[in-house]
Design a protein around this nucleic acid. Structure first.
Length: 106
DNA sequence: CGGCTGACTCTGG
DNA sequence: TCCAGAGCCAGCC
């Protein structure tokens, strides 16, 4: 399979997010680092640019604090938390999850 | 082509 | 422990 470098970093980011197994999460920074020359902001922006119909488990991407980032769109954060809980991830009373336990690393 | 924006992260006080 | 500022780069008008 030939890979085109013409692909945007977004595609790379999506691919990585798709590689996150169920019950695990990944931080923006980790995804960015694995994607290559990319920054956490790019990942965040890539997630923001997601469209319905994609098979990207965006809810498995969280910030470095182990928290769900507040986004511009309404209650997305609440949905994300529910999705993660649905996968067996337990949230702390402060709304945080244990990164040492759920963080997916290669 | 230039400037603004953003689901982040890090460091210092 | 919490708050604020700076850095970062691709996409869009």
């Amino acid at each position: 399979m030939v890979k085109k470098n013409s692909e945007t970093q977004y595609e790379k980011i999506y691919h990585i997010v798709r590689g996150i197994p169920r019950g695990r999460v990944m931080t923006y920074g980790e995804v960015a680092r694995r994607a290559g020359n990319c920054t956490a902001r790019m990942v965040g922006y890539a997630m923001a640019g997601l469209r319905p119909g994609n098979d990207v488990p965006w809810h498995r991407v969280i910030n470095a604090k182990g928290e769900i980032s507040d986004r511009a769109s309404g209650d997305g954060a609440l949905i994300q938390r529910k999705m993660l809980e649905s996968e067996g991830i337990i949230f702390d009373t402060r709304g945080k999850l244990d990164l040492l336990r759920y963080l997916y690393r290669y």
